[in-house]
Amino acid sequence: MGDYIYLHGFASSPQSYKGQCLHSHLETVGIDLRLPDLNQGDFNHLTLTRQINQITQQLQGPTTLIGSSLGGLVAAWVAEQSAAIERLVLLAPAFDFLQQWLPRLGQTQLQQWQSTGWLSVYHYGLKAQQRLHYDFLTDAQRYADHQLQRSLPTLILHGTQDDVIALDASQRYAQTRPWVTLHPLDTDHGMANAMGEIADAVADFCHL
């Protein structure tokens, strides 16, 4: 059956609603979903590379990765680099992440981030403002979605009402990768009203 690991999103935690809900659902079919903390006690120096390395080092054998938002992007890169990943389930994955996120910051805030080295971000897991180092941006710029080309079973579930990561990003990703199945859902980025449907889709996709 292999291992199952859930990767939470940006400025979130293993206690996120999606992660805990999926943990409970999968527990009923005998799956112990692992929920690592991608913050590693140091959100201030978070980078995509650090998250990818963290998960890659934790792999113990054949693994199904379930990733939400930025965690979905991390999952895709882990799968690109490790043959241990057998399949991916991506919930509103953060493809085109910088192209969608940076315009919301605005040019003034972006310049301040670069000049001071720090950006204030609300962390939903900690329920408090946290500083994020500029290395997060420069590191993320090293990763281009078009380089994700490993063919493996991939299910993407993405809300049609998502105003954080646009559904278009997942549609573009799936269009050029025949191994990807995209299921649009009538929900937003939080996906709270669709967790039953998501749990059923995950169980079906993973043959549980």
Rank of each mutant, 00 (worst) to 15 (best):
Q171P: 04
T181M: 07
R104G: 11
A140R: 03
Q58P: 07
V121F: 00
D200A: 06
D204T: 15
C206P: 02
Q147L: 12
H183V: 15
Y122R: 03
T160P: 08
T181G: 05
L119I: 06
A169T: 12
Q109C: 13
D139G: 06
L155H: 14
Y143M: 10
G190V: 06
R34D: 06
V78I: 07
N53P: 01
S170G: 09
S69K: 09
L88M: 15
A128Y: 01
D37N: 11
G125V: 06
L22M: 08
K18M: 12
L48M: 08
D145W: 08
C206F: 11
L7E: 07
L105F: 10
S68V: 07
T116C: 00
Y134N: 04
D42K: 10
G9W: 15
S82W: 00
T176H: 15
S82P: 00
D96L: 06
T64I: 11
V78K: 03
K18C: 13
A11G: 14
T64C: 13
G196F: 10
A192G: 05
I66K: 01
L59D: 06
Q40G: 03
T49E: 06
D200I: 14
D139Q: 03
Q99S: 07
H123A: 01
W101T: 09
P103S: 11
I85Y: 12
T187V: 03
W101L: 06
L98N: 11
W118R: 06
I156K: 05
L98K: 11
L35K: 09
G71N: 08
F10N: 12
Q81P: 00
L185H: 10
Q99L: 07
L148R: 12
H207C: 10
Q171I: 13
A128N: 04
S24L: 14
S16Y: 15
D3W: 13
H45T: 11
T138V: 09
Q129T: 01
L157A: 06
D204A: 12
Q57K: 10
R34A: 14
T187L: 00
P178M: 05
A92F: 08
Q20T: 13
Y143G: 08
L38D: 04
L46G: 03
L91R: 04
Y6N: 14
L137I: 03
Y4Q: 03
W77A: 01
A128E: 02
A174S: 11
A128M: 00
D186Y: 13
A76W: 15
G125C: 04
R131G: 10
R177H: 09
L88D: 07
F136D: 01
S16A: 15
M191C: 10
Q129Y: 08
Q20K: 05
D3G: 14
T108K: 12
T187C: 09
M195G: 02
R142N: 08
Q57L: 13
Q161G: 02
L70M: 10
R50G: 00
Y6C: 15
G67L: 01
Y134D: 02
A169V: 08
L137Q: 02
A203R: 13
Q161N: 04
S82K: 07
L59H: 02
A201R: 15
P153V: 10
Y143V: 08
Q141V: 12
L65M: 02
Q130R: 08
L152T: 03
